[in-house]
């Protein structure tokens, strides 16, 4: 694409200053402040000094580091489930294996538009003791089943919130897939499963990796639906950040945030570099 302006040194300088100023004001500045607060002894007093005590507390008290562990455990579960479920949906829609494939493809994006807190409320309503799920299980098994405050309602919330990211990543790869290779393998006598495992799946790798990284990051950061459905013992890191900030401990909330950002960033780098050596994310 052609640069729309003459690249004089002055224009370039002005653009650089404006763009970096805006980026700093809206993105880097707030994140850098969180970083700085996490190393400050007391933000509210206005006379804070450099300290590592918030990190010390964070990594020495189970009640504080527990939510970080919970976040990653839940994210791993969600990634695995999404690899199965998201791939299935993407494969079914792109290859038009199901009736209403195009509608399903469109609907798979719907949770991007729905506020996450609404997703949480919807899950609580549906799977709660007064919702349809309890009524159905009561009818079928004679005992109403409720998922309120369980691990599963939390996993479902994260799956709904991350679903479009996996489906879109997989769909992007699937549409570009060379189906002639599969046809050739089938014509040589390979069964469907063998073709999928040895021909299709390896070609899906960029989509699997991109989807997994996006799902992992999104799940770790999920807040809106989580705060509605999460139980006290399964509190995740974003909820802990909210709790600490609400209790006035900005320093501890900042330390949590820095750890969360760093670990997410490292996970992103590792997964993308390790699995996508020499390839680009779809």
């Amino acid at each position: 694409m052609r640069w729309p302006f003459r690249r004089t040194a002055l224009e370039r300088t002005i653009w650089t200053v404006i763009v970096w100023f805006l980026f700093g004001l809206f993105v880097l500045g707030p994140l850098a402040t969180v970083f700085a607060f996490s190393f400050t002894s007391s933000v509210l007093s206005g006379t804070g000094t450099f300290t590592l005590k918030w990190y010390g507390q964070l990594f020495s008290q189970p009640g504080l580091y527990g939510p970080l562990i919970r976040s990653f455990e839940i994210a791993v579960i969600v990634v695995v489930f999404q690899l199965l479920f998201g791939t299935l949906i993407a494969y079914s829609t792109v290859r038009e294996k199901v009736l209403g494939a195009k509608t399903l493809d469109t609907l798979s994006n719907i949770t991007i538009a729905v506020p996450s807190v609404v997703v949480g409320l919807a899950l609580l309503s549906f799977y709660g003791p007064f919702g349809p799920f309890a009524a159905i299980t009561q009818f079928l098994f004679g005992n109403p089943l409720s998922l309120t405050w369980t691990l599963w309602i939390l996993v479902f919330a994260h799956m709904i919130e991350t679903f479009p990211y996996m489906v879109r990543s997989m769909a992007a790869v699937l549409v570009k897939l060379d189906t002639h290779l599969e046809s050739a393998a089938r014509s040589l006598g390979a069964n469907r499963l063998h073709v999928f495992l040895t021909i299709t799946l390896p070609q899906l790798k960029p989509g699997l990796v991109a989807g997994s990284v996006l799902v992992l990051s999104r799940s770790i950061a999920e807040f809106g639906a989580t705060i509605i459905v999460v139980s006290a013992v399964l509190k995740t890191a974003p909820i802990a950040i909210f709790t600490q900030a609400e209790a006035g401990s900005l320093e501890l909330a900042s330390a949590y945030s820095v750890v969360l950002m760093l670990v997410s960033f490292v996970a992103y780098l590792l997964m993308s570099r390790w699995l996508l050596r020499g390839e680009t994310i779809a």
């Binding site: 609580l124 003791p129 409720s146 309120t148 405050w149 139980s231 006290a232």
Partner: peptide
């Protein structure tokens, strides 16, 4: 109350 018969606490 929201917990029905499956309390968190």
């Amino acid at each position: 109350r929201m917990s029905g018969g499956h309390p968190e606490a």
